[in-house]
Design a protein around this nucleic acid. Structure first.
Length: 314
DNA sequence: AAGACGAAAGTGGTTGA
DNA sequence: TCAACAACTTTCGTCTT
C-alpha cells in the first residue's frame, strides 16, 4: 500500500492561486478544501492539527501528559470505591424498612444506577470525540462529516455496540460511514492510517454499523474520487471532465461492478490524461489513488477494450 | 534511465456448502 | 468451518521511449 506523502507538499497558506495567480480563493465545505475560483486548483489538502501531539486514553493520562494547567490531583469520580446502596430492604441493623422508607431507598438506588451508566457513557463519548477530532483534522474532514460521525457513534454507544470492541475501531468505522454517506471520498485505508485500530477491526465494525444501525450508505461511485485525485496531480478541468465521462460510459456498460472505485477512477484519469495531452505516469496516478500501477493498468486496458476508446498515437 | 507491459505467485476478504 | 473464488498486490523480466 502506497502512502501519499505528496499531501504534505500541498500545504500552503498563500492567498493567491499558485497556478493562475487568481485571488478568488473559495472554500469548499463539501470537501474541506480551499480551491482557486478561477482554475479550480486545490490549495489546502490538509489542515493543521492544533491538538496536542500525544494521545491520552484516560483522564489520568491526560492530566499526566498535559504540560499546562494547575497541578491538581487527578481524581476520577467513583473509582469503584464509592458507597453502593444495598439491594436488600433492611437497614444497618438488619431491620425491615417501613414502606415509606422503602420507596425512598428504591429511588436512591435507581438514581445511583442511572448516574453510573450516564457517567460511563459520558467518559466513553468524551474519549471517542477526542479521537474523532484528531482523525478528522488529520484528514481535513469538513464539519458536516465530523457531526455525522459523532451522531453515528453516539447511536452505536446507545445500542451497546461498543461493548467488547475498541473505541478507536468503532470511531474509525463511524468516520468512514460518515464519509461514505456524505460522499466525501476517503478510502478506508486513509482513515485506518491515523488510528490505532487495525484495518480488519475497523472494516468489521463498519459492516456492523451498517447492519445494526439503519445507516444507509450510497454505493461507492468512482466519480467521487476524480476531483480529489485530479487536484493532487494538478490536472485541468477538461481532463477531469473527460475522466468523469469515461466512468459514466463504463457504468452504463456495467463493467464497474465489484471493482475498486479508486482503481477505476485512477484508470479513467490515466486515459483522460493521455487524451487531453496532460500525461501523467501510471505510477503517479496509482500513488495518489492508493492503488498499484498494476491495477491502474488492468482497469485501463479493460476500459479501452470495452469502450473502444481511441487513444492518441504515441 | 524511466515508463509501460504482462505473467506468476501471494494476500485478504467474501460466499456458499 | 472450510474451500473456492474474484479482485488486488507484489515481484520480476522484457520491451519501448
Amino acid at each position: 500500500m502506497y502512502t501519499s506523502d505528496s499531501y504534505e507538499e500541498l500545504q500552503t497558506s498563500e492567498t493567491k492561486c499558485p497556478v493562475c495567480g487568481g485571488t478568488n480563493i473559495i472554500y469548499d465545505p463539501e470537501r474541506g478544501q480551499y480551491a482557486c475560483g478561477e482554475c479550480g486548483t486545490v490549495l489546502t489538502e490538509k489542515a493543521v492539527d492544533q491538538g496536542p501531539e500525544w494521545r491520552a486514553f484516560t483522564p489520568e493520562e491526560r492530566e499526566k501528559r498535559s504540560r499546562v494547567g494547575s497541578p491538581i490531583t487527578p481524581t476520577v469520580h467513583d473509582k469503584g470505591l464509592s458507597t453502593v446502596i444495598d439491594w436488600r430492604d433492611k437497614d444497618a441493623l438488619g431491620r425491615r424498612l417501613e414502606p415509606k422508607r422503602r420507596l425512598e431507598v428504591l429511588r436512591w438506588r435507581k438514581w445511583q444506577i442511572r448516574t453510573r451508566i450516564q457517567s460511563s457513557m459520558d467518559r466513553n463519548l468524551a474519549q471517542a470525540m477526542n479521537e474523532l477530532d484528531r482523525i478528522a483534522s488529520q484528514l481535513a474532514l469538513p464539519r458536516s462529516v465530523r457531526e455525522e460521525a459523532a451522531v453515528i457513534y453516539r447511536k452505536a454507544v446507545e445500542r451497546g455496540l461498543v461493548r467488547g470492541r475498541s473505541i478507536e475501531s468503532v470511531m474509525a468505522a463511524s468516520i468512514y460511514a460518515a464519509c461514505r454517506r456524505l460522499k466525501v471520498p476517503r478510502t478506508l485505508d486513509e482513515i485506518v492510517k491515523y488510528t490505532k485500530a487495525n484495518r480488519k477491526d475497523v472494516a468489521r465494525c463498519y459492516r456492523l454499523l451498517l447492519r445494526e444501525l439503519t445507516v444507509r450508505v450510497p454505493i461507492a461511485d468512482p466519480t467521487d474520487y476524480v476531483p480529489r485525485i485530479g487536484s493532487l496531480l494538478g490536472l485541468g478541468g477538461s481532463t477531469l471532465r473527460r475522466a468523469a465521462e469515461i466512468l459514466k460510459m463504463a457504468r452504463d456498460r456495467g463493467i464497474t461492478a465489484g471493482k475498486d472505485p479508486a482503481g477505476l477512477a485512477a484508470a479513467a484519469i490515466y486515459i483522460a490524461s493521455l487524451q487531453e495531452d496532460e500525461r501523467r505516469t501510471q505510477k503517479e496516478i496509482a500513488q495518489v489513488a492508493g492503488v498499484t500501477e498494476v491495477t491502474v493498468r488492468n482497469r485501463y486496458k479493460e476500459l479501452v477494450r470495452e469502450l473502444n476508446i481511441p487513444l492518441p498515437p504515441q
